[in-house]
Design a protein around this nucleic acid. Structure first.
Lengths: 197, 197
DNA sequence: GAATTAATGTAGGGGTCGCTATATAAACCC
DNA sequence: GGGTTTATATAGCGACCCCTACATTAATTC
């Protein structure tokens, strides 16, 4: 499967797979939020003891950073695919919002956006890691908009980001996919109006 | 000032004013969020000891309920004033969003909406208290919209609520009043388009 | 005055938090 | 085998969490 068949490293071999561990931790963090997941929760879910955890991930925020990277690469919104230069900016942004609506409510056990929710946790390091990814995503959006609507890039990006934050928050408060989609489409109407093709 | 001059009650008189205490606690909760404020933080800010706190407010969530009531009566958005029957529904809702944008970023030390942020904390009782107020506010909006646009009331309410959640989240992440106002106005464009006067 | 009522201050219980010191176990190389 | 390296398991530290038992103080009523 995922066997990396190099000659084994020196000391005692690991009893668990760090990649699987990150995936498991992602589930926990996404379900309950960073603050509500304790290191004990993680170690128990992994069937390991605290020293193994700290040897592999340094600390709780370190694990969260790994989780955020995995999330943005695997489960995050594929901005590169959606922000296409061959169609109107408003159309691409509408696709982003629609994709957000679908993903944020797709799994009731992991609602909302892990990054956006992470930007609001009570741990400074974890919050900063999430904010960095959030800033990067906003930068991607802003650059895309600026290429054709330079004067509107900032406020359009703010609006899209604000809407996504709202969608994530409402997903966590129980809104269904249909409800989120309806809100996303209403927001997209504003974009279509503000960004004439 | 606020002296309620009735004949004093029986036992030893209180050393602190519960109303002032609620106001102080509101500041703390609004600044840091429910989870990040400890009972020790509150008692220290009030200059009292834990037993006095628990005698007056039962527990931390009990204090938060008092704070939420005070907030929604004094610092919350005045829906009754803004949702006026003498102007277009979309205009009233735009006024609500604009008011939210202004309030959420007015005080950098108390950004966002205390109720909306409270609906996402990690304490069940506190969360439920906040959600009850949120549900009530959404009901007010829904009833107002339904009077003239019954078929659109649900989705419009969802959209307004989602936008407010986004504004609150972004306020807490550092967006300025101007940024929030711009986003609120873009959202209002969608409302104007969806709800013809 | 004595009895009653209620809020106070002191002190700490019981629990969870993130994290670690220490010793042991399991692989490697020679 | 012996020596080295690395991950493990056991056990627990110090800090903080929400909350409370208990004796004391300050007001009332009688």
């Amino acid at each position: 499967m995922t066997a990396t068949n190099k000659s084994r490293p020196r000391g005692r071999p690991r009893h668990f797979d760090p990649e699987e561990a990150v995936a498991t931790a992602q589930r926990l963090f996404h379900a309950r939020g960073y603050d509500a997941v304790s290191v004990a929760d993680v170690t128990q879910a992994l069937g390991i003891n605290p020293p193994s955890f700290y040897a592999a991930f340094d600390n709780k925020a370190g694990l969260f950073a790994r989780v955020l990277d995995r999330y943005s690469q695997i489960d995050g919104i594929p901005f590169a695919d959606l922000l296409r230069p061959d169609r109107p900016v408003a159309t691409s942004l509408a696709a982003v919002l629609e994709e957000a609506a679908r993903r944020y409510a797709a799994d009731p056990a992991a609602s909302g956006c892990l990054v956006l929710e992470g930007t609001r946790c009570n741990d400074g390091d974890a919050r900063q890691a999430a904010r960095a990814l959030n800033v990067a995503a906003e930068g991607t959006i802003r650059d895309y908009v600026a290429a054709r609507h330079p004067d509107d890039a900032d406020r359009i990006t703010d609006f899209v980001s604000t809407t996504m934050s709202g969608l994530s928050a409402k997903a966590r408060n129980g809104h269904s996919v249909d409800q989120l989609l309806a809100s996303a489409r209403l927001a997209s109407q504003a974009l279509a109006q503000a960004l004439p093709a």
